[in-house]
């Protein structure tokens, strides 16, 4: 009985056909002399058959209809979302450029206090960036 209890997981693996050759020999040797384990195997097989019979279960009547609606939603081309997304992206790019240009200008401006020609050039650059 104790031996049966220890061997049961291995016997189950043997029933499932995923066991090494050496382990299979141990299981087969035990099964040759143990009626209890043989009956347990039959019960396992019956349970497997019963679970197989549990499926399928009839889906609700409106299953197909609801699925078609959901299907329509995922297949729709999101025109509005696409336009709005592009608009946001362009706004973000313009703002980012302006911010970047202002920072660069501030930094370089602080270095170029004594050189008015550099200041002039930077102002031009700032203007160009802003324009873009």
């Amino acid at each position: 009985m104790n031996e049966c209890h220890k061997l049961l997981p291995l016997i189950h693996d043997w029933v499932e056909g995923c066991i090494s050759f050496e382990e299979a020999l141990i299981v087969q040797e035990h099964l040759r002399k143990c009626a209890l384990c043989n009956s347990i195997i039959l019960e396992w097989l019956e349970i497997g058959d019963e679970i197989a019979k549990l499926l399928p279960i009839n889906a609700p009547q409106k299953f197909g209809e609801t699925l078609s609606l959901k299907f329509g939603e995922i297949s729709r081309i999101p025109v509005f979302e696409l336009i709005f997304g592009w608009f946001l992206a362009v706004c973000a790019a313009v703002c980012f450029k302006k911010i970047l240009a202002s920072f660069a200008l501030l930094f370089l401006h602080s270095l170029s206090n004594s050189f008015s020609w550099i200041e002039l050039t930077l102002n031009y650059i700032y203007l160009i960036f802003n324009f873009l």
Binding site: L54, L55, N58, A59, F63
Partner: peptide, 23 residues
Amino acid sequence: RDRVYGIALYMLRDIELAEDIAQ
């Protein structure tokens, strides 16, 4: 659909959720 719904129902034990997940 009946097999998929069956699996979902046994897994989730909730008729509405099973239908939703099967879809």
